[in-house]
């Protein structure tokens, strides 16, 4: 009997130490039956991508409050490409102005961005919907 679980890496890149949001999300995803790997604070994009590969996650969620989102999302995406791991979805949240969010998504650096005030159920639903389409994760 197979028993697949959705695995998510919640990453805190950069210098800000505000991880309450990341913890709330991690907890919500856990309660939705997912396995959540929490990276801890102050991660470099390199550390996040290496962890995502070793843990074989379906999805990376970045939490960024520092204003560095326009640098970090493209960098993580680039590293995933270098590692031939673009099948790992990249989403995020934090303090991200609307126009930046639009451009990150338009340019393919993030699949979805959830800013403050988003109900956690919306994030859970988004992930579950996307994973239904992603069942071929192994091959």
């Amino acid at each position: 009997m197979s028993q697949t679980r959705i695995r998510v890496l919640v990453g805190k890149p950069g210098l800000d130490g505000h991880d309450r949001g990341a913890k709330v999300i991690a907890r919500a995803l856990r309660d939705a039956g997912m396995e959540v790997i929490y990276s801890g604070l102050h991660q470099t994009p390199e550390q996040i991508v290496e962890a995502a590969i070793q843990e074989d996650v379906d999805l990376i969620g970045l939490s960024i409050m520092s204003g560095a989102h326009l640098t970090i999302f493209p960098r993580v995406k680039e590293l995933l490409k270098q590692q031939q791991a673009e099948d790992i979805l990249l989403i995020g949240g934090g303090i991200i102005p609307e126009e930046d969010a639009e451009s990150l998504i338009r340019d393919g650096y993030a699949e979805a961005l959830f800013t403050p005030g988003t109900p956690t159920t919306e994030i859970v639903d988004w992930i579950n919907d996307r994973m239904k389409l992603n069942r071929s994760k192994y091959f």
Partner: peptide, 20 residues
């Protein structure tokens, strides 16, 4: 979690110096 099947896996946090 025996209730939801979910989990928080946090051991990596203490193993940062080998992350890359």
């Amino acid at each position: 979690s025996p209730l939801t099947g979910g989990a928080i896996l946090g051991d990596r946090i203490r193993m940062q110096s080998h992350a890359t």
